[in-house]
């Protein structure tokens, strides 16, 4: 059962990735990438990383993809809403992908929770994860938080409005 789910999810991931990279419209590409990341999160769950699966959805499919959408909306000129075409091909493929993803998620939830050890031979609970992270990799957590701080400062610096007259205004 779990093995079959793995191959189904692998197919969904590859299909969504290829569709994502061949889209002309960046918004469609980002939405297909969200599909791929959801399938990848379910793969993480199957491989015994439930906490990492949750973070994949929260951090990647949530935060980072919304950041992408935000920037696309920021730099693309606004266009009038085009009328939704009634052609089946336009909604059939996303519908199949979403439906199969939903079915896979439902199958994972429906599996007996007491038998989670049967899903993966290695099953890392959030408790083990936190213990291993903060006992052995405390320094790495500090370094990563510094990197995130530098990235935030750098993004703030780059995102300022460019005003050539600022220096003369100050002096």
């Amino acid at each position: 059962m779990a093995t079959l789910l793995f191959y189904i999810l692998a197919t969904i991931t590859l299909l969504s990735t290829v569709l994502c990279l061949t889209r002309k419209n960046p918004v469609h590409a980002v939405l297909y990438l969200v599909h791929a990341l959801f399938a990848l999160a379910l793969l993480y769950f199957l491989l015994g990383a439930p906490l990492l699966a949750a973070w994949q959805i929260i951090l990647y499919a949530g935060a980072i993809m919304v950041l992408f959408l935000f920037v696309i909306m920021l730099i693309e000129p606004p266009v009038a809403e085009s009328r939704t075409s009634g052609r089946v091909i336009h909604w059939l493929i996303p519908a199949i992908l979403s439906g199969s993803l939903l079915a896979c998620g439902g199958a994972l939830i429906a599996m007996d929770p007491a038998a989670t050890n049967a899903i993966a031979s290695y099953w890392m609970t959030p408790r083990d994860f936190g213990r291993a992270l903060f006992v052995h990799y405390g320094l790495a957590v500090e370094v990563i938080s510094m990197i995130l701080l530098f990235a935030a400062v750098g993004a703030f610096h780059l995102g300022r409005r460019y005003r050539p007259t600022t220096k003369e205004d100050v002096s």
Partner: peptide, 23 residues
């Protein structure tokens, strides 16, 4: 799994700066 988590954090930092550069 721990390194995958650190990878996610680094990717978040990278994409922040890269998107600021795009803008």
């Amino acid at each position: 799994q721990l390194f995958a988590l650190l990878l996610m954090a680094v990717a978040a930092a990278e994409v922040t700066v890269a998107l600021a550069l795009v803008v």
